[in-house]
Design a protein around this nucleic acid. Structure first.
Ligand SMILES: [Zn+2]
Ligand SMILES: [Zn+2]
Ligand SMILES: [Zn+2]
Ligand SMILES: [Zn+2]
Lengths: 155, 155
DNA sequence: TCCTGCAATGTTATAATGTAACAAATCGTG
DNA sequence: CACGATTTGTTACATTATAACATTGCAGGA
């Protein structure tokens, strides 16, 4: 199951959340979210720019990065630090901390929300007197499907 | 305690480990490790290049990145993905998975080795049929010292 | 309605990080 | 020394991200 949520659903959800929060999901921001949501893979900022270039031939990096900043702040997309790429959040309607499973073979990304992981990490931090703010938790390996078939479907 | 290990100790340890493993800690690699170990903060690749420029005025990026690749492969340095920077490993003499606590105020980095964190993360991954290979676990927040004094000692 | 202030976007240029490709030097070994 | 393999040098370029300032668009009040 490469994607759990169709792009249109993600947009509808984002519309609703932004309305409720009194923030503006502008056309730019919606288009960037749509590009990310339409992809089965994480997209880099410049990939997104290419995707938007049809509608906006003159689009430039700051436009994309600004939209990404907004979408991240609203919890609508997450950045994968180890890939320099962005994915849509699967549960933007409630706050959460995520962990990401990134398949080395097929490139699929799975978003987890394990309370145990976050809890043990925060415990370890608190034991050093450290107060966590933002967490980056990413695991690279092989997904169930690729382990099963032992091939590399999408290089 | 910004650093637990003096630079000279880190070099000695690296010398020993590389000898035991039959790999070569060349001058380049030692110099890069020394630069990282001498710093109380994570260094970017270009920071390292600047640090080496005294001895080697003509040094270029590939030289630094190659040394970093070697040092990472040997577990002598770790990369902090969220900072695009590198730190020396505090326990290079035995294999381990690390977690990093990164202070937003003073920039200090603490390397943890919590079996609980790694265990719960691997459990969560296995529950999805995922086989972990490499883990990136970084927490940004405020360290004990900065929480205590409430100021920003080194901006 | 029209002004006005702020948020958002456009635009240009550049910074920061990282790699490809090939040549030259160096090292260990027979 | 000759050889192959590893390491380093060198040049050029690719990728990711931001600074700075101009312009546009939207909302709320006079
Ligand atoms: Zn999420
Ligand atoms: Zn896979
Ligand atoms: Zn370590
Ligand atoms: Zn601190």
């Amino acid at each position: 199951m490469p994607k759990t949520q169709p792009a249109s659903k993600a947009i509808q959800m984002a519309e609703r959340l932004c309305r409720e929060r009194g923030v503006r999901l502008t056309n730019q921001r919606r288009d960037v979210l749509a590009a990310i949501s339409a992809s089965t893979r994480p997209l880099g900022a410049y990939d997104i720019m290419e995707a938007l270039r049809e509608k906006q031939p003159k689009i430039a990096p700051p436009t994309v990065y600004r939209a990404l900043d907004f979408l991240q702040a609203e919890g609508l997309v997450h950045k994968l630090e180890s890939l320099h790429a962005y994915v849509g959040c699967q549960h933007p309607d409630h706050p959460h901390f995520s962990q990401f499973l990134i398949c080395n073979d097929c490139g699929d990304v799975d978003e987890l929300h394990s309370a145990g992981v976050t809890g043990s990490l925060d415990d370890a931090a608190h034991a050093r007197g450290f107060e966590p703010d933002h967490r980056t938790i990413e695991v690279v390996g092989r997904c169930a499907r690729c382990l099963a078939q032992g091939s590399k479907p999408a290089p």
